[in-house]
Computed example of a mutant assay.
Amino acid sequence: MAESLKYTCHQYGSINELQRLGVWELDPVNINKYWIIYIHGGCWRDPRIDHKTFANSINCILAHPSPTSAQSSIAGFASLDYRLSPHPDFPQDLSTTPESQLRNATHPAHVNDVYSGLAFLQRRYGFGSRYVLVGHSAGACLALQLLGGLAGIDNGLEVVLPEVVVPFEGIYDFSGLNNRKGGTYAEYFSGAFGDDPLGWDAVAPLNVPESFRGRWADGKLVLLGWSKDDELIDEPEVDAMAARLQRDGVRVVVWKDLSGRHDEIWEQGEQVAKMVLWALDDVVRGT
Rank of each mutant, 00 (worst) to 15 (best):
E237T: 12
I171P: 02
L223H: 01
A242R: 06
S190R: 15
K181D: 11
Q246L: 11
G152K: 15
F168W: 10
V203F: 07
L150K: 15
M241P: 08
L221V: 06
P167I: 03
D173T: 09
P162Y: 05
V166K: 00
Y172L: 07
K228R: 12
G219W: 07
P209F: 05
A202Y: 07
R244L: 03
E231K: 02
N207G: 11
F168Y: 15
Y185V: 10
A243L: 10
I233A: 03
V250K: 04
L150M: 13
M241D: 07
L198D: 13
Q246N: 09
N155V: 08
G152H: 14
W226Q: 05
G199F: 04
L198V: 10
L161F: 06
E169Q: 15
G219H: 09
V166D: 01
D173F: 07
W200H: 14
L224P: 03
I171G: 03
R244M: 05
L177W: 03
L258V: 01
Y172P: 10
E187V: 14
A217Y: 04
D230R: 04
V238L: 00
W255F: 02
D195L: 15
D196P: 05
D201F: 09
L206H: 10
K181P: 06
A217Q: 14
S175M: 12
N179G: 15
E163R: 10
L245Y: 08
A151W: 13
D195W: 10
G249E: 06
I233L: 08
R247I: 01
S211D: 10
K220C: 05
Y185P: 03
I171L: 13
L245G: 06
M241L: 12
L258F: 11
D257M: 01
N178E: 13
G219E: 07
P167V: 02
N155F: 11
G191W: 10
W255G: 00
V160C: 12
A240M: 11
D229V: 01
L245M: 06
V166S: 01
G156L: 12
A192K: 09
L221A: 09
V208C: 09
G182D: 10
R215Y: 11
K228C: 07
F212W: 05
G170D: 08
P162C: 04
S175D: 11
V166G: 03
E158D: 11
A151I: 11
D196A: 13
V252P: 00
Y172F: 13
